Computed example of a mutant assay.
Amino acid sequence: MKNLLLASSCCLVIGTTASAQNLAPVITSSIAPFTEFVGAPARSIDLTAAFADPDASSAVQFSVLLPSSTGIFNIALDGVHKSITVANFLDYVNSGRYFAPDPTTHMLASSFVHRSVPGFIVQGGEFIGTVDPSHPGNAQPIAVVTFPKIQNEPGISNKKGTIAMAKVGGDPNSATSDWFVNLQDNGGAPANLDTQNGGFTVFGHVTGGGMTTVNAIAAVPAFNFGPPFDSFPLRNYTPPAPIKLVNLVSINAITVIPPLAFTATSDNPAVASAAISGKNILVAGLQSGTAHITAKATDLDGANVSQTFTVTVAAGPARLANISTRGQVG
């Protein structure tokens, strides 16, 4: 794994400023009008069949320890265009490989940001911070246990705010667990990350105000301990003291989150109510009449799209009388 970091370090240099562009959600199918009966169970409609995010098939939330606080940033993952890389990254997240039991403390240890170059990138996903068994007060990095290397998927530019996979120099198809976030536009000269070594695969972008947290990571002082920790960000650290776990910029949680948030409103709530339950909209008929329901999908950058459908509420269907016949004699 150290070879991966060293090769990546040789290949990455400072680039120029640019911003990643977000694509707004789209309507994939129209919700048809329907009739509902008063008092019937609420009708459930799956909104993921009605809306989609063109550049976010899924998303994750990072929680990171900063010098005096915990920072949060979200990543929209573009599995539509970079399916291999997104599936690989989610394999690490869902299997828990960015975390590991500490052999000394037997507590769960987390990965950390091991490389930070101001104006260029912050990088993580390669090491987990554990306790040094010989010196229990000190930190000892261990390598993330990796899955097999994956096929390179270049094509999206390494712009500011994008997340991409690091690789071994001279081997385009060598990405495993190691990711980096671009602090500036590094796709073109002089970094040329879009073309060198087959191009570095961008598979998502930081959403909303998340770059505030990423920039706060980049602002943490970095120290040179020699490769692979030659630009090593450390919290509240004063050299030449030993490095402790509390000094690491630890990623203490990575959580899968929905790429879209849904809301719903009714223009006639006395006739039909509309409520969101997870990815579904629940429509209930309350009294006879007509209501127009508006469903809205909002992505993690705040862009949204909506559609409106009509619900006609009718009185409950007549019930057949329970008639019984009895045989008569005589």
Score class of each variant (00 low, 15 high):
Met1Lys: 13
Leu6Ser: 14
Ala7Thr: 15
Cys11Val: 05
Leu12Arg: 13
Ile14Tyr: 07
Ile14Asp: 13
Ala20Met: 00
Leu23Asp: 09
Thr28Glu: 01
Ile31Met: 06
Pro33Ala: 08
Glu36Gly: 11
Phe37Ser: 12
Pro41Leu: 07
Pro41Lys: 09
Arg43Phe: 01
Arg43Cys: 04
Ser44Cys: 08
Ser44His: 06
Ile45Cys: 05
Asp46Glu: 03
Asp46Pro: 05
Asp46Gly: 04
Ala49Lys: 15
Asp53Tyr: 08
Asp53Pro: 09
Asp55Met: 05
Asp55His: 03
Ala56Trp: 00
Ser57Pro: 01
Ala59Asn: 06
Val60Glu: 12
Val60His: 11
Gln61His: 04
Gln61Lys: 15
Phe62Val: 11
Ser63Gln: 12
Ser63Ala: 12
Pro67Trp: 04
Ser68Pro: 00
Thr70Pro: 00
Ile72Asn: 02
Leu77Ala: 06
Gly79Pro: 05
Gly79Ile: 10
Val80Ser: 12
His81Lys: 14
Thr85Glu: 07
Thr85Phe: 06
Phe89His: 02
Val93Tyr: 04
Ser95Tyr: 05
Gly96Tyr: 11
Tyr98Leu: 12
Phe99Gln: 15
Phe99Ile: 07
Asp102Pro: 03
Asp102Arg: 10
His106Asp: 03
Leu108Arg: 15
Ser110Glu: 13
Phe112His: 13
Val113Ile: 15
Val117Ala: 06
Val122Glu: 02
Gly125Ser: 11
Glu126Pro: 00
Asn138Val: 04
Ala139Gly: 02
Pro141Thr: 12
Ile142Ser: 10
Pro148Phe: 05
Lys149Ile: 07
Ile150Cys: 03
Gly155Val: 06
Ser157Phe: 00
Lys160Phe: 12
Gly161Leu: 06
Ala164Pro: 01
Ala164Glu: 03
Ala164Ser: 14
Ala164Asp: 04
Ser174Leu: 02
Ala175Phe: 01
Ser177Trp: 06
Asn182Lys: 03
Leu183Asp: 10
Asn186Trp: 00
Gly188Val: 00
Leu193Cys: 13
Leu193Gly: 05
Gly198Leu: 13
Val202Asn: 09
Gly204Tyr: 04
Gly210Ile: 15
Thr212Met: 09
Val214Tyr: 00
Val214Asp: 00
Asn215Ser: 14
Pro221Thr: 04
Asn224Ala: 01
Gly226Cys: 04
Pro227His: 12
Pro228Trp: 05
Phe229Leu: 15
Ser231Cys: 10
Ser231Lys: 15
Phe232Tyr: 15
Tyr237Phe: 12
Ala241Glu: 13
Leu245Ala: 08
Asn247Leu: 09
Asn247Tyr: 06
Leu248Val: 07
Ile251Asn: 05
Ala253Val: 05
Val256Gln: 14
Ile257Ser: 00
Ile257Arg: 01
Pro258Ile: 05
Pro259Ala: 08
Pro259Lys: 09
Thr263Leu: 03
Ser266Gly: 11
Asp267Thr: 01
Asn268Cys: 01
Pro269His: 03
Val271Cys: 07
Ala272Lys: 02
Leu282Gly: 01
Ala284Phe: 10
Ala284Tyr: 11
Gly285Lys: 14
Leu286Ala: 12
Ala291Tyr: 07
Ala291Gly: 09
Lys296Ala: 14
Ala297Tyr: 04
Leu300Ala: 09
Leu300Gln: 07
Ala303Asn: 14
Ser306Glu: 12
Gly316Lys: 10
Ala318Tyr: 02
Ala321Ile: 01
Ala321Tyr: 08
Asn322Gln: 14
Ser324Tyr: 12
Thr325Tyr: 15
Arg326Asp: 08
Gly327Trp: 13
Gln328Trp: 10
